[in-house]
């Protein structure tokens, strides 16, 4: 896993200009891919051990979180108390296990702290809270993150800061009216420092998002609300790196990323299955999942060995 050390050698102040200087080499992508596998393993362990959690939605957004925290955003335990760094709000708060894995890896708290997730008396509840180092806002009721991020972006503009505010929302979450109220404000105040990301995995608890409440065409809706809209494969590390390096997409417009993902991504029998929204793996399922991730890890290292 020597690959991972690469990740730590990065610019301390990574505004978007500096980020484009970041070497987007194959090694870099592979290092990030290795991290995604580590996060997938970790979040599955968390859910398995707590016997609760949101498996599908954590697996779908973990590549996004990975690229944001390890390539795009300037957020570290060291600069966390500063205002002029990037900020992240986990609007789809139920997918907290993915965030816990990434924050542990970033050094916000020791890995062992994760053993208490969901246990009696722990600070690690099943949704993000500010009790946890690295988390900026309590979320879990859907449809709150974007408005909060708008407030942060607006404050940053008022203070002439050069940072960006990121948030990830679920696609089922988009039905909340507050998303659209916040969207109007984002465009009204020309918040090009706001990066709203939709985890477009096409599933929610009850099934397909389009069957539950049709919201397409999403691109047209977001455009009409004043966003600069981009599509990306939200589970493709290289594509994500490439896209986020182009921020802001358009001066004077808030950024909206439709990240097309697979719910449950990375585990064959969990992928694209609505019941896995909050299903906990059985012992056998857990073992098979870890084996699948182990095989993927081997593949990465084999490719690496050929170089």
């Amino acid at each position: 896993m020597a690959l991972l050390n690469f990740i730590t050698h990065r610019n301390k102040y990574s505004n978007s200009e500096m980020m484009t200087h970041y070497p987007n080499t194959t090694d870099h992508y592979r290092a990030l891919q290795a991290k995604s596998l580590l996060y997938r393993k970790t979040l599955l362990k968390l859910i398995y051990s707590a016997k609760a959690g949101h498996t599908g939605g954590s697996l779908s957004c973990v590549d996004l979180l990975n690229v944001l925290y390890n390539h795009v955003m300037d957020i570290t335990p060291q600069n966390f108390t500063q205002m002029n760094r990037d900020h992240y709000i986990h609007s789809k708060g139920h997918a907290v296990e993915a965030l816990y894995a990434v924050l542990a890896d970033k050094g916000f708290f020791p890995w062992e702290a994760l053993e208490t997730v969901g246990k009696y008396g722990s600070n690690f509840v099943g949704h993000p809270t500010r009790d946890i180092p690295g988390i900026e806002q309590n979320t879990g009721a859907l449809g709150h993150g974007l408005a909060f991020a708008v407030g942060m972006a607006l404050a940053a503009k008022k203070d002439g800061l050069t940072n960006r505010i990121f948030t990830i929302m679920g696609d089922g979450e988009l039905v909340e009216g507050s998303i659209w109220e916040a969207s109007a404000s984002a465009a009204h105040y020309k918040l090009d420092n706001l990066v709203a990301i939709v985890d477009r995995n096409t599933l929610q608890i009850s099934g397909q998002t389009e069957d539950v409440m049709a919201m397409e065409p999403l691109e047209d809706k977001f455009k009409a609300f004043g966003y600069a809209v981009c599509h990306v494969d939200g589970n493709d590390i290289a594509a994500l790196v490439d896209l986020f390096d182009q921020l802001p997409f358009e001066k004077g417009k808030p950024n909206l990323v439709l990240a097309h993902t697979t719910k449950g991504k990375g585990i064959s029998f969990i992928e694209d299955k609505a019941p896995w929204h909050h299903k906990v793996p059985s012992e056998t399922e857990f073992e098979i999942a870890l084996r699948e991730l182990g095989l993927a890890e081997n593949d990465l290292e084999v490719v690496d060995g050929l170089e």
Binding site: A52, G118, G126, H127, T129, T139, G140
Partner: peptide
């Protein structure tokens, strides 16, 4: 909702 916490 137990461990899901205060939002729930």
């Amino acid at each position: 909702y137990g461990v899901l916490g205060t939002t729930h």
